[in-house]
């Protein structure tokens, strides 16, 4: 037997071995116990399959990857269908459909036929080219693009622009200031101390302004403008470093979670 046959057969044997290990022979409902054992074993195997990519791209990884694509597409489709079509649209469209899908009828809202019509227009892309009506789907695209653009413009202008400017400019540059004498006599370098608070607010204001100057390309970055822009790069570099470190630790945390699942919940090696 060659490797291509041996490896899948060996994998199936190991899988069945783990399935038997996880099977609760004392359970009252044996079919339920078998399914529970299968699902835990499958979770462990899929985790190992993905980890196998660390060695190189291989059939086990491809198996898990392709399964993930199919399952996740269907998952989001089902969740979207039940929450947006069945629970949101149907109760306003038809009492008969609402009853058939166990939903309370909430009264007619004729405007809900508009998204259904737009949705059906979008599906005209699936019709044969010979019918020459696929271009109607662009009406739906136009609606989606327009509503997204309109929505994002106002939301971003408020959250990303006005709020950020107001949060930056409303920072007190001399927080809790009661005079130079008090500042000197109560001087401390702790994290919540007045000096650090003051320093932090200055760093934020200067950092935001210098960062903005760096992104302003309508003026040449020379002279004092260039020096402020250079400071902006320094602030950006600290941010990129911090973001990188934070991302790494986030991934490490996920890795620890998966290893805990493998060694504790699945293999039972650690308690």
């Amino acid at each position: 037997m060659n490797r291509k046959v041996m490896i899948p057969i060996a994998s199936i044997i190991v899988f069945i071995g783990f399935l038997l290990l996880k099977f609760d022979f004392e359970a009252v409902d044996s079919s339920q116990a078998l399914w529970d054992a299968f699902i835990v074993t499958a979770g462990g195997f899929l985790t190992l399959m993905i980890f196998s990519f660390l060695y190189r791209d291989n059939p086990f990884y491809k198996f898990a990857e392709h399964l993930y694509v199919g399952v996740s597409a269907a998952y989001w489709m089902c969740v979207g269908f039940w929450s947006n079509i069945v629970q949101q649209a149907i109760p306003h469209l038809s009492p008969w459909l609402s009853e058939a899908l166990d939903q309370p009828f909430l009264g007619y809202k004729w405007d809900y036929w508009i998204p259904i019509a737009f949705g059906l227009l979008l599906l005209t892309r699936l019709l044969p080219d010979s019918l020459k009506i696929g271009w109607l789907s662009k009406w739906t695209l136009a609606f989606i693009v327009a509503s997204t653009a309109g929505l994002l413009m106002t939301a971003n202008l408020k959250a990303n622009f006005i709020s950020q400017i107001s949060s930056t400019m409303s920072l007190p540059l001399l927080p809790d200031w009661t005079g130079f004498g008090d500042f000197v006599s109560n001087f401390d370098l702790s994290y919540g101390g007045q000096f650090i608070k003051m320093l932090s607010n200055w760093v934020i204001v200067v950092g935001v302004i210098s960062g903005l100057v760096y992104f302003f390309f309508s003026k040449e970055h020379t002279g004092w403008f260039g020096r402020v822009s250079r400071l902006g790069i320094w602030v950006l570099m600290v941010t990129f470093g911090a973001s990188f470190g934070y991302t790494v630790m986030g991934r490490v945390s996920l890795l620890v979670g998966r290893l805990t699942f493998l060694f504790r919940d699945w293999a039972g090696i650690i308690s």
């Binding site: 994002l152 413009m153 971003n156 202008l157 959250a159 990303n160 622009f161 950020q164 400017i165 949060s167 930056t168 932090s200 760093v203 934020i204 204001v205 200067v206 950092g207 935001v208 210098s210 960062g211 903005l212 760096y214 992104f215 902006g232 602030v235 950006l236 600290v238 941010t239 911090a242 973001s243």
Partner: peptide, 19 residues
């Protein structure tokens, strides 16, 4: 602090870009 400052500068740019 510095991370927030740079991110605010980036968000402002993103906000203007989206508009």
């Amino acid at each position: 602090v510095p991370n927030l400052a740079a991110k605010r500068a980036i968000w402002m740019g993103v906000g203007l870009g989206i508009v």
